[in-house]
Amino acid sequence: MTTPEPIVALEDVSKRFVKPLDTAEKIGRIFGANVKEEVVRAVDDVSLQIAEGEVVGLVGESGCGKSTLGRVIAGTMNPSEGAVRYRGVIVEGMNAQDRRRADLAIQMIFQDPMASLNPRMRIAEIIGEAPVVHGLVSRRDAEAYVAETMQRVGLDPSTRKRYPHQFSGGQRARIGIARALAVKPEVLVCDESTAALDVSIQAQVINLFMRLREDLRLTYVFVSHDLGVVEHISDRVAVMYLGRIVELAPTDSLFSGPNHPYTQALLAEVPRLEARKKKFSALKGEIPTPLNPPSGCHFHPRCPFAFDRCKVERPMLKEVAPRWSAACHLNDKAA
């Protein structure tokens, strides 16, 4: 049996930024504090293959590079180094027409649906604009197409003349999803798409994602810091730490027996409905910034198992079981 070609593949992808100042830092600067802009390695040498029809969850603490990696996958950002392949072809090297096809095939759905919806456009335009512009439907058929797309995500087509602010948070999330679906994508990159929603509405949106996956054979990259949500819908999970993937495994394996010490610590912190009054015992230490990552294994200052080698040598992502890899020197010791 030959492995089918991945729909999206990342090869040694890195992304660097000049770090912007946050509000407190800006205020600090006004008051004379010495706050400088610096270079961040948001994504640091990541390789990942995503199979057609698969749901890959991307988890990690804030600032670890999940959203950046999501944007690189969606093609809204080019990598600083390395390559993104869509169906085997390097996206950056494509001619304009192929690039446009690849961009349409991989759609991004954002965290804050309100911020990503133009407040002055009616829902019908928000959903119908791109497919008309890209010639996927004729202007004449647009109205029926919009109605069909709205129905697919559980929106009432008779509300298509309304503006985004006239909808609830959950409905706005659906509008964002409908807009992405309207260009007939194959891959959806969802960045914290349920984070801003109330639990009962979040459940509606998660159910919708799962139904669409079946109806349309979609592939998902699901970026979230909510491990409960990721566990619920993903087939495989990639755990990121300071720009690197430190563990990549089928969801069941990862949640039942995490290999990497960071994954172990992270899973221990997840609040669970099944848990009863317990003593929270926490992973020590702040989330380090990607501005100045620790040497060797980035996790070593917080790792209870760190030994000499961890401070000097970066552990590479290695297979620890079929389809399961982790980046930790302990795995060499065990062998």
Binding site: S200, A203, I206, G228, V229, I233, L273, E274
Partner: peptide, 24 residues
């Protein structure tokens, strides 16, 4: 009842979550 059913949890993995219809 509905709220608790809508939280993703271990024993519900992969199956549809309970939904409270409508909105707040």
């Amino acid at each position: 009842h509905g709220l608790i059913g809508s939280v993703p949890s271990r024993n519900k993995r992969g199956s549809p979550l309970a939904q409270i219809p409508g909105m707040t």
